[in-house]
Nucleic acid binder design. Structure first.
Length: 281
DNA sequence: TGGAAGCCTGGTGT
DNA sequence: AACACCAGGCTTC
């Protein structure tokens, strides 16, 4: 038997709290200042340490692989310093950077991300987390902790059924999750392939799913499909845009999103998260 | 074609 | 204590 447990250190500013538990992902558990979760079937723990973070993996000891999936998940190729420099004159972005420097856009599994944000409709962080974590437990348990599950496949969720999803507390969102699972099983949508389509086409495809409108589609595009120009507009970001950039209350969320995508381009997803955190907390 | 009601349900405020 | 009201949105009318 191998030990299966390895660790490492990443010397880059990463704010674990805002990145992992700030509303992009809902499956990280904090215990003794350690953030535990599952990335690509590998159980990982992160902890803030000195200028960066340290990590442990528990069911995989392939160092190259772990380094690679962590770098991908935490978007380590994105240069926050340059991001800040590009937006030096933007007071709203700078004031948020002061507080949340190290907040990063995650690269999550698209299926898990899609289900999570379908659950987010008219909900709140606590409730979404409960919903997502109970769905997660439909999947395979791979470790001793409460959080150590592989997120269930579309087929598994479909088999589990709408009624039981309702009973987990999803409410009116349950049939939406089922519709998403169905469209993926029937290959009407291939989430992985969306990475290689344009922003507009990928977004339209996602919005074919019942319960997925512009906001949820943008979240999935930004937080799991690597579309850095995606800019989800919820009521908080709406308020932030109107206040900080002096925009009219009369603009609807679609128009605000268009405005932001034009203005921030490939910084969009980062700008959105920084504005979101700054207005919420 | 825009705008508001309705949807599940847990949490918060009164 | 019980009750209204709302929440990181979408669909329907």
């Amino acid at each position: 038997m191998t030990k299966n447990q390895i660790s490492g250190y990443i010397d880059t500013p990463i704010d674990l709290e805002s990145s992992l538990c700030g509303g992009q992902s809902f499956r990280w558990m904090i215990k003794n200042k350690r953030f535990r979760g599952v990335i690509r079937n590998v159980i990982i723990e992160f902890q803030q340490k000195d200028r960066g973070i340290c990590w442990n993996s528990y069911n995989n000891d392939d160092l190259n692989f772990i380094n690679q999936i962590i770098a991908e998940y935490l978007d380590l190729n994105f240069d926050l310093k340059k991001f800040s420099e590009r937006n030096l004159k933007d007071i709203a972005i700078q004031s948020s950077l002061d507080k949340y420097y190290g907040l990063r856009i995650l690269n999550q599994d698209p299926w898990e991300c899609l289900v999570s944000f379908i659950c987010s409709a008219a909900s709140n962080l606590n409730k979404i987390t409960k919903n997502v974590q109970s769905i997660m437990k439909i999947g395979e348990k791979i470790g001793p902790e409460e959080i150590d599950y592989i997120f269930p496949s579309p087929q598994k969720i479909l088999t589990f059924g709408e009624l039981k999803l309702r009973n987990l507390g999803l409410g009116f969102r349950a049939p939406y999750v089922i519709d998403a699972a169905l469209k993926i099983i029937e290959e009407k949508i291939n989430l992985q392939s969306l990475k290689f389509s344009s922003y507009d086409i990928s977004k339209k495809k996602l919005m074919m799913i019942n319960g997925v409108g512009e906001k949820i589609a943008d979240c999935v595009l930004a937080f799991s499909l690597n579309f850095s120009n995606a800019f989800p507009v919820d009521r908080w970001v709406r308020r932030s845009l109107i206040n900080q950039y002096n925009l009219s209350e009369k603009l609807n969320n679609h128009e605000l999103g268009d405005w932001a995508r034009k203005r921030f381009k490939d910084d969009g997803s980062y700008v959105q998260q920084y504005l979101f955190h700054n207005i919420k907390n």
